[in-house]
Computed example of a mutant assay.
Amino acid sequence: MGTSVKNLIEQDLISQLEERGVLLKYHEDLVKDYLSYYDIKRKLIADIKKRGVSVFYQNGENQKGYKRNESVSELNKITATMLKILSELGLKPPQKASDGDGGNADLL
């Protein structure tokens, strides 16, 4: 089994910081934050794939319908935060990397 996409992202970000000579504990902590947001992002995407962009609700016998899946707006917020972290680090997101199965996976 190959290296996970998350590990590849971490290696790439650390490598970029090392190349620039700015790898301090502060930067390492921001990379860890970025990876935590990455995990959240994957879960939000999985929820949207599973439940869709609209979800059924029922608040009683007569009060029911469809509402927007909150994971959609949360995904937008998480992605924006990830981009802010990369900006704070002075980095750009890697474009593509192998996902271990021979395909390509987006890293942001």
Results as ranks from 00 to 15, higher is better:
Met1Cys: 04
Met1Thr: 12
Gly2Asn: 11
Thr3Val: 14
Thr3Glu: 15
Ser4Phe: 01
Lys6Glu: 09
Asn7Val: 03
Ile9His: 04
Asp12Asn: 15
Leu13Arg: 10
Leu13Pro: 04
Gln16Asp: 09
Gln16Glu: 15
Glu19Val: 02
Gly21His: 04
Leu23Pro: 10
Leu24Val: 11
Leu24Gly: 01
Tyr26Cys: 02
Leu30Cys: 01
Lys32Val: 01
Asp33Phe: 02
Leu35Val: 07
Tyr37Gln: 09
Tyr38Asn: 09
Asp39Thr: 01
Ile40Trp: 01
Lys41Ala: 07
Arg42Gly: 00
Arg42Pro: 00
Leu44His: 07
Asp47Ile: 03
Val55His: 06
Phe56Thr: 08
Gln58His: 08
Asn59Glu: 15
Gly60Glu: 07
Arg68Ile: 02
Glu70Tyr: 01
Ser73Cys: 00
Leu75Arg: 10
Leu75Pro: 08
Thr79His: 09
Ala80Ser: 14
Thr81Leu: 08
Leu83Tyr: 05
Lys84Tyr: 05
Leu86His: 06
Leu89Asp: 10
Pro93Val: 04
Pro93Leu: 00
Pro94Asp: 02
Gln95Thr: 14
Gln95Asp: 11
Lys96Pro: 00
Ala97Cys: 11
Ala97Ser: 12
Ser98Ile: 05
Gly100Thr: 10
Asp101Lys: 14
Gly102Glu: 08
Gly103Leu: 09
Leu108Trp: 02
